[in-house]
Simulated assay, not measured.
Amino acid sequence: MTVPGGDGGETSSSARNHRRRPEPSPTQRALGLLTRREHSRKELARKLVGRGVETAEAQATIDKLATAGWQDDARFAQSLVRSRAAVGYGPGWIRAELGTHGLGAEAVSAALASFEDDWAGVALDLVRRRFGDAGPLDITQQRKAADLLLRRGFSIEQVRIATRRE
């Protein structure tokens, strides 16, 4: 069978297939994902299976990569805590998100404990970004700020600190 080529000539089907890249191995697929950002075991397995890798083969690949240090749930959790805190999410929200990644309560607690910043300071930074350096000026703005912080997973005490007027 011949297929029209881009130069007006005809190209055989076998010649066209010869130019294709070989299908990446499950390890290559996983490494491609891990070089972009950290992934939890659960997330990496879901993505590999979604790309056509058998479940057992995906688990074996992840085990191999974890042993080699390429995949680490603790490192993933710490990375997620830092990135979410940087955009203004509190520990409650982050704890819930880490839970969706199949991490146990101990791993989640350890990741949150490793956060070196002050959660009240993160809340205050978010309030300042939303309401300006002066912060919420009246009771209506204070309520809006408090609602925002509570939705973002901050504790009542962190909300009080971030919304009080100086």
Rank of each mutant, 00 (worst) to 15 (best):
R20D: 12
R20S: 14
Q28P: 02
Q28G: 12
A30R: 01
G32I: 01
G32N: 02
L34C: 08
T35H: 09
T35V: 03
R36W: 04
R36E: 13
S40D: 05
K47T: 11
K47S: 09
L48S: 03
L48R: 02
V49Y: 00
R51C: 11
E54Q: 08
A60L: 05
T61D: 00
D63N: 11
L65P: 12
T67G: 11
T67Q: 12
T67H: 11
Q71V: 14
D73K: 08
S79E: 07
L80G: 06
L80Q: 12
V81C: 06
R82Q: 15
R84G: 02
A85C: 05
A86S: 10
G88H: 03
Y89E: 10
P91M: 13
G92M: 04
W93E: 13
A96T: 10
L98V: 07
L98Q: 06
T100W: 04
G102M: 01
G102E: 01
G104K: 02
A107K: 08
A110Y: 02
F115W: 13
D125V: 00
D125I: 00
L126G: 03
V127I: 06
V127H: 05
R128E: 14
F131S: 07
G135R: 09
G135W: 11
L137Q: 13
D138T: 10
D138C: 10
Q142W: 08
Q142C: 11
R143Y: 12
A146R: 12
L149K: 05
R151T: 04
F154K: 01
